[in-house]
Computed example of a mutant assay.
Amino acid sequence: MEIPSLSAFQNQDFPSASLYVIATPIGNLGDITLRALHILSLVDGIACEDKRHSLLLLKHYGIRKPMVAIHEHNEIEAAKKLMDHLQAGERWAYLSDAGTPGVSDPGARLVAEVQINGYQTIPIPGPSALTAMLSIAGEVMIASRGQFQFLGFLPTPKNDFEEALRLMIESPIPTIFYESPHRLAKTLIRFSELLDNGRRLSIGRELSKKFESLFLLRADEIPGWLENPNHLKGEFVFILEGNNRKTITENHEPWHLAQLLSKQLSSKDLSIVLQSMYGLQKNEAYDLALAAKKGGG
């Protein structure tokens, strides 16, 4: 396939001695951007997480370039070899298996190594399961005024896993996270045990692929959803609705924290902490900070 030559590309520089970090489709090959295809046809070589996986994309678009594998097990060592190519003034691209490199995928260490050695890293935006799910979050994102936290894949050690769940459950803003199919049932059962029944969980399964499906469940609906074995196959991304402000305030956590920090922080700094921790409005947080400083309440 011939890569389109668009006038938009003619007005942009493509620096040499640079690493182009390129987002690739998370399922549907048609989601690759025209700019990404242009750059893949331009670079001198392509580093990737898995050559077999990236070749499927490159062959589909008729792109043939020298390739090297750079993954989580050899990222630093392979990055040093890549420096020789950049030092020679070459342009190289980096692809993870799917989505945006560095977002719960290899790539961050490579980018850091390139930057430390004084070479440019240039992002080429595109597909991401994170942003795809956010774009259809609707009411959940309206309630949080566009704020969210992203935890990536949940940790494996039990104590760390439970701490991650606590973080999500207490957070006043939505939490986006990934989970692997083999741990999916265990994780969701734990949510059903810990969450208030009305708390909602959005599930994106196989986004952009043939069997893409989306679900919005209340906590008490999770066990029934898990009974369908087809629900447990594929790749997943989740959004847990934020804890509403009323519930948090009823637990008196903001007031207790304000009292504890009132002697160490100014009213302004204390209000900023309260806004960040509990999602309070600016005026609410400042009034609470003033009350704590005065010893009222």
Rank of each mutant, 00 (worst) to 15 (best):
I26Y: 11
P254I: 07
L34D: 06
R35L: 13
K51C: 08
S16D: 14
I272K: 13
R52S: 00
S171E: 00
E162A: 13
A78S: 13
V111P: 06
M168R: 11
R52C: 02
E193H: 12
N159Q: 15
I76S: 11
S128R: 05
A17Y: 09
I22W: 10
L6A: 07
D13C: 08
E162F: 07
A8I: 15
H256N: 12
I142Y: 09
L55S: 08
F9W: 06
L280P: 01
D196H: 15
D50W: 06
A36K: 02
K51P: 08
G30S: 04
Q281Y: 11
G146I: 07
H73T: 12
K209R: 05
Q87F: 06
W92G: 04
P127Y: 07
S171T: 13
E77P: 05
P66Q: 06
K293H: 14
N251K: 15
R91N: 03
G118H: 10
Y61M: 05
W225T: 04
I22F: 05
D269T: 05
H231L: 02
E163H: 15
G198M: 04
I46M: 05
I22H: 11
E227W: 03
I122G: 09
S128E: 00
P106F: 02
S171N: 14
I39D: 00
G89L: 05
E227Q: 14
P125G: 03
T247F: 02
S180N: 01
D269L: 11
S262C: 08
F215T: 06
L56K: 15
I70R: 09
I239W: 01
G107D: 02
H53I: 12
I142R: 15
A164Y: 03
K209T: 07
Q147I: 04
F153W: 05
E139T: 12
Y178V: 01
D44Y: 12
P181T: 07
G62A: 03
Y119M: 05
S16P: 01
I32M: 03
K65R: 14
Y94S: 07
G295K: 10
F238H: 08
E77T: 14
E221M: 03
F9I: 07
S104E: 01
